[in-house]
Design a protein around this nucleic acid. Structure first.
Lengths: 222, 222
DNA sequence: GCAAAAGTGTTCTCTGTACACCCATGT
DNA sequence: ACATGGGTGTACAGAGAACACTTTTGC
């Protein structure tokens, strides 16, 4: 959300502050996490909120979302989808176009700053959020869970090659429940979204796992 | 979309023209129709476009959509859902928050004006539209079809009481294909969204039909 | 040889789909 | 009596869910 002031007289001709807001998810240690930023100035100084801000000149909401994502995590080319446009998150007649993004925590490098520092928070243990951002996170989470069932969005949370167990752990973290290994594997393979690469992951004192890759590393519905 | 001019310097502080845009659907004579408005001034004078316009002071996008819907059709309290926020429909850096609405053609009374007259158009025979509104209609149609499968949105297209055949014709018009009568009826009844009212519709020289009503005349997912 | 994760099939239930005939009424 | 739309049941196929043991490797 915006933090700058604006002239209320401008709304008379339909001009409003327009912000982009991004719910950035990752899966780490089997937990679904969200990126939050600690606010270093009023309003809500010291609170946590979603990354976002007013559109820059010449920029559309999508572009602002991509920019914010890059600023906070350094990543680009990840899954990013428009969610919903909120207009009652604060009392300033502003409009917030929200997005959700999925990033692989191994590739994301959080911005290191003293002011407005970002941090990962587990979705089921969020602090109180500024600007009613809870509503945005909740909405994003619902959409993410639905999308997981009929798309390949998970590609954006994993490295190029991965084992079926890794994939299953990602699904379990997002859905918040355990899945049956055999049913999960059968389903993933029958959907035809992933293919074995031939490589094997040697990871510990146990049998190495077959590596797989998504056929498409861009949004595909099924 | 907006038709007024705006000062480009204002976008530097994140202020943008914000409009609401409504895709209003109805089913008439077994055809899915969309409400379009003939533009009486440039740009795109003489073309057809979706109803919409800049937000009024103190108004959120939802409220603007409700207002537009009432202005054009006289109805309120119908199914209305935010769709998507477009920002590249014209070249004026404006943002258009789109909605789709479902209205019962029998209850809708189209505004009678000389300028900017509204009219129903069949979705599969639309004229060329101003401001890339085709994209908005297409998006709305996809969403409507998906929603039909797992919600009770159809309540908004029918009178309080209706026969199963009427309901089926609505579904067929929206989905654009014929449905099996027995399967349709079994499914509708097993979902528990509608109940027989006890009344009967005597409509012609054939057996009268049982009347049904939706249990809830507001959005319910299943 | 043992600890650890990989890998693999079958059964059952439920849901969706295909399909055809009799019923009640008005004219 | 006949034309018109209302109303009903069954069989099959495919998808999802439950469920346990063997395999391969490192130590």
């Amino acid at each position: 959300m915006s933090t700058e002031a604006h002239d209320p007289s401008l709304v008379g001709i339909g001009l409003r502050p327009v912000a982009a807001l991004v719910v950035i998810f990752t899966v780490q240690d089997g937990n679904l996490q969200v990126l939050l930023i600690r606010r270093s100035a009023p309003p809500y100084q010291g609170w946590w909120s979603l990354p976002g801000g007013l559109l820059s000149p010449g920029e559309g909401p999508d572009e602002a979302a991509v920019r914010k994502l890059a600023e906070e995590t350094g990543v680009a080319d990840v899954y990013l989808e428009q969610l919903y446009t909120f207009w009652d998150l604060d009392d300033r007649e502003g409009v917030a176009v929200s997005y959700f993004a999925l990033v692989d925590a191994r590739q994301a490098h959080l911005a290191q700053r003293q002011e407005w520092p970002p941090a990962w928070w587990p979705v089921d243990g969020l602090p109180p959020l500024a600007f009613k951002n809870e509503r945005v996170v909740e909405y994003a989470l619902r959409r993410l869970r639905a999308k997981l069932e009929y798309s390949n969005v998970a590609y954006s949370l994993l490295p190029a090659q991965f084992t079926l167990s890794q994939l299953q752990r990602v699904y379990e973290a997002i859905l918040g429940r355990r899945l049956d290994k055999r049913n999960f594997r059968r389903r993933m393979l029958s959907l035809g979204l992933i293919v074995p690469t031939g490589g094997r992951a040697v990871e510990g004192r146990h049998r190495p796992a077959q590596l797989y890759a998504f056929k498409e590393r861009r949004p595909v519905l099924f």
